[in-house]
Nucleic acid binder design. Structure first.
Lengths: 199, 199, 199, 199
DNA sequence: AATGAATGAGAATTCATTCAT
DNA sequence: AATGAATGAATTCTCATTCAT
């Protein structure tokens, strides 16, 4: 399981335990993402611990409150999405980049929304790291939008706030209904037509 | 606090008591609608009882579980909206009727969504009376949509499922963000443009 | 599960449940007084519930926090002692009255101190009803002191603060050591000699 | 339960390590004395470790239970005070020696009492090394008392048990109330007058 | 010998639901 | 039919103590 590493602190040895702890932390985050992502019910921290195969106290050692755990889960997810967005900033086709990312976010939404709601339930105020990460994602999304508008693929008279609200809304719709590929596509058709430049 | 009161059989009518009970039932529903509509947190049944001015047991006499109470609240709300829809079926301008109703539902959504989430939290499966009422509302909405399409105000290649999903999505967007009149209008502009017939 | 209790409430009787509840409340207070009075360990609310023969939630119905429970227990005890003091205010022999009351408080102290410490542990700030009751007891004690001084039984150059502190100290000494009648008497001999007028 | 550890005979001196360990042990004791002396709440062992700059396991290596740690802290304190007492046994003025030491113990009490209470909370029975050290302190105090009585400064009809109880009581009074120099002095005036020889 | 991660047994508090009147 | 007191099963979080390195 563990690396042998420098037995007696002879110098080279490092952080063996740390690796273990880090693995636990990651597993807890993964499990929490899944458990809370299921949404609906309000899952308990104990459930997370059980599925992660650790004691409840271990969860609380890594995340001092339930809110902190949810923040971390959500922030990680936002961060991943922002990275996606940033990777698309140099894409050859700005229109495709924007629309594809929009599609991707909607498809990815269900789990995220469950987590966000659990966070609200747990009393998360908008001041945590998740909010920060959310803002950054929104900015990256805004950059994609701007490029798409400059490329003439998205009408000029819309701005980030309403487009983002639309994204959130469609995501929420997709979250609870999980409409299947087909209907999600038809939904997006309408929305994208609404976003297309007026003739 | 309340005396049993009105115990004296009033002869012919036992309906007097019934009236009392019915009034209580209505008041409980009203209060529950408000309390749970506030959304966010999960309000307690006891809170509802207190604000309704009845004992907690009275709430449970009328609605055997919290889920049942939420179902009733939600069903009543769906019914009201369906009535609105049906009233618009004979409107002179089918386009106006559809779009106006769409707008109305979105504006009305925040409270409803709060209730629906509370219902999910309370373990409400989609099989109750609320689901039934929801289906009926959807049908009425579908009728309005069809008329608007026949009138050429809404594009022909969309169907109820995706339009309804879109409605739900925009409603959800409006729910948590309460964007204010302005942004809601801009949001609807995009959506309605997307729904307009292609040239 | 429920004791028959107060069954006889037929005649003029009302509030039968109320009577039950009141009995429960009293029993909880009694048990809590004993349990926390034992001092030392930090007794749990669950222990109180179990010994009182009620569910834990019942304790919390009557006293919304552990602190509130402890406040109530302590306040009740202070109130009883204050009543004793007030009853002695008209005693024929002011010296006997004061010294006797001093003796009584010391003998009564052990349990009280345990409770007070539990209250501190539970985060009781000095602002509750117990503090209020404590202040009133101190005032009554002060009145007895003043009378004893006027009667020439207690030296004139001492004032309430230090005498009360002395009372507290001796009480605390008696609390943990429970020295038995004998030694308590010898202790009080010293203190009372110290309080006697200088020649 | 214990690992064999340190199995490899290191031949000559193991004392180097021992010095390190001893330093750690002393630092832990110092920190614990301060932390628990603050009284009130119940401080955690982890807090002690953190402030001492060692890992939690190190604390438990030196003191196998929290109780053992508290015993050690308290015993050390008792020992120090006993040394003070023994140093005063040869003082020129036995009355001054006794009264001064009494005063000193009262002033020093607050921290000690906090520790003692933490010990009780942790389930310390009176059988540990602290009790032993306490007994020795009491004996030294008794010797001072006897000398003062022989010198005619303290009345003859009091004996160690009640005087010591009085000391404890006044100390306890001073502990929670921290009355300030002034009132402590007035308190001691009364007590010392009570201890003075009857005329 | 030292470290810090992991653990499980509580503890306070809440809430939907039932019972006795 | 109405009341409100009682209930016990959760849930979040803490802490002394042990384990693996």
């Amino acid at each position: 399981m563990n690396t042998p590493a420098g037995r007696r602190g002879t110098g080279g040895g490092v952080r063996v335990q740390r690796a273990d702890a880090r693995a636990n932390r990651a597993r807890i985050l993964d499990v929490a993402e899944e458990v809370f992502g299921k949404g609906g019910e309000s899952a308990s921290t104990e459930e997370v611990a059980r599925l992660a195969g650790v004691g409840i106290a271990t969860v609380f050692r890594h995340f001092p409150t339930k809110t902190a755990l949810l923040e971390a889960v959500l922030a990680r997810r936002f961060d991943r999405q922002r990275e996606q967005a940033e990777a698309l900033l140099n894409a050859a086709d700005p229109g495709q980049a924007f629309l594809g990312f929009f599609r991707y976010l909607v498809a990815d939404a269900p789990a995220k929304i469950g987590i966000a709601e659990a966070l609200l339930d747990a009393g998360g105020d908008g001041g945590g790291e998740a909010a920060q990460a959310s803002t950054e994602l929104r900015q990256a999304f805004g950059a994609l939008l701007q490029r798409a508008q400059q490329a003439g693929v998205i009408r000029d008279d819309v701005e980030l706030p309403e487009v983002y609200a639309l994204l959130v809304g469609v995501s929420r719709a997709a979250a609870r209904e999980h409409p299947g590929e087909q209907m999600r596509a038809r939904l997006l058709t309408i929305v994208f037509d609404g976003l297309a430049p007026r003739l």
